[in-house]
Design a protein around this nucleic acid. Structure first.
Lengths: 199, 199
DNA sequence: ATTCTCTAATTGAACGTTCATTCGGTGCGA
DNA sequence: TCGCACCGAATGAACGTTCAATTAGAGAAT
C-alpha cells in the first residue's frame, strides 16, 4: 500500500515533469498527450487516471510549479534578519531557482500570459499566497518599500528576476552568486523607500 | 489598380487584426484558421493568399505589432530635450499604447514567451531595432543610466511598463496620464546613474 | 460603348492528418 | 475474487491546408 502510494506519486510527478519540459520546448499546443505519456514512461490512458483532461493537467502543473518556486524562495529565510537582507535572499533564491530549473521559468512565463491564467485564476499555490506575497506586502505596509500596490510591485520585482535569469541563461555571462547579489541590490535600491543619502 | 492595392492591404490588415484579437482571447492553439477567417470577413483560403502558413502569419503579426509599438513609443520624441524627459515620455507612450490597445499587450507577452520567439528570432521590427533599442543603449553608454547590458535593462524596463499597463487594465484604478508619469519617474529613479542626493 | 481576354483575388467544400479522449482488457496485491 | 493501477489500440472531432471553380477588374480590340 505504501509502495503503491509512492508509485502513484512517482508516476504523477513523472507526468508533471514530462509536461513541464515539453511545454518549455514546444509550447502548449506543440505538446500532444501522446508525447507527454511517452516521455513520462507511461501509457496515454494512464494520464487520465491522474488528471481529468489536458487543461486540468496544466492547471495542476501550474500549482506544482508555484509551490516549488515558493519553497525555493523561502529557503533559509530568517525573520530576525533585517528586511533588506531577507529581500535580497528572496530575490537571489528565486533567480537561482529559475537559472537552475530553466523549464520552470519558461513554463511559468508562458502560463502567466496565456488564457489559462484567466480561466483558472482560482488555482494558486497555497504556500506562495500565504508566505511569499505577504512578505512583500509586509515591506510595503511597514515603510521599507515604496508605497505601491502589491499588484504593481509584485510583477515589477518578478519581472526583474525573470529578466536576470533569462540573461544568465542566454549564456552571455557565467552565473555567480556574487553577480546575482549585485543585481538584487540594484533592484532593492530602486524599490526601497527613498529619502536618504546615496553614495 | 490603386483600389486593388488598397483592398489588398485592407484584407491583409483585417486578417492580422482578427488574429491579434483571437490570440489575445484564446491563445495560439485556441484560434483556428477558420475562426480567424470568419472574424476577418474572408474565406479560409484567402488567408493562404497572403500568408504561407499559420506560423508565417503569426510571425508577420509579431513584426506588425512591434512596428506599431515602436511608432507609438517614439511619438513626439524630441532629441533636444534632456535624456530624462525623453525617457519618461518613452515610458509613458509605450504604457499608454498598451492600455489603449490591450490585444497588442497580451499578444506580445504570449509571443515573447512562446517557442515562436526562439524559432523566428530573426524576424524583428526594423523601426524598433533602429530607434527604440539604440535610445536605451545611448543612455547606458553616456552615463545617464546605470551601467548594465541592454539585454538585462531592456527586459526590466519592459517588465515595468507591462506591469503598470496590466495594473491599469485590471480596473483597480482610473487611467490618468499624471499617474503614469509618477510611475515612470519611480522607474527612472531606479535605473538612472546613482551618486547624487535624494530627497 | 461593348465585347473579349487575361490575371489576380477570392471562395468554401474536401482532404488527410493529428490530437485528446475513451474503453475493453491485463496483471497484481489483498 | 475484488478492486485498482495501468495499458494502448480505437475513435471521432477538429484542425491546417489545398484546389478546382468563380468572380472582379483593367486594359485591348472592335
Amino acid at each position: 500500500m505504501n509502495v503503491q502510494l509512492e508509485n502513484q506519486t512517482c508516476k504523477k510527478t513523472a507526468i508533471l515533469e514530462s509536461t513541464l519540459i515539453l511545454i518549455k520546448e514546444h509550447g502548449f499546443h506543440g505538446t500532444p498527450m501522446s508525447q507527454i505519456a511517452k516521455n513520462a514512461g507511461v501509457a496515454a490512458g494512464t494520464i487520465y487516471h491522474y488528471f481529468d483532461s489536458k487543461d486540468e493537467l496544466i492547471k495542476e502543473l501550474y500549482v506544482y510549479v508555484k509551490d516549488r518556486l515558493a519553497a525555493a524562495t523561502l529557503k533559509d529565510d530568517n525573520e530576525k534578519q533585517p528586511y533588506r537582507d531577507r529581500f535580497i535572499d528572496f530575490w537571489v533564491n528565486q533567480c537561482s531557482f529559475f537559472i537552475k530549473h530553466e523549464a520552470f521559468l519558461y513554463f511559468l512565463e508562458q502560463y502567466i500570459n496565456s488564457p489559462y491564467a484567466k480561466h483558472f485564476a482560482m488555482s494558486e499555490s497555497k504556500l506562495f499566497n500565504s508566505k511569499v506575497k505577504p512578505f512583500i506586502q509586509y515591506g510595503i505596509d511597514n515603510g521599507m518599500i515604496r508605497k505601491m500596490d502589491y499588484e504593481l510591485l509584485g510583477p515589477i520585482v518578478h519581472g526583474s528576476i525573470v529578466a536576470a535569469a533569462k540573461f544568465h541563461l542566454s549564456g552571455r555571462h557565467d552565473f555567480t552568486i556574487d553577480r546575482l547579489h549585485g543585481m538584487a541590490e540594484v533592484i532593492w535600491d530602486g524599490i526601497k523607500e527613498q529619502g536618504e543619502l546615496r553614495g
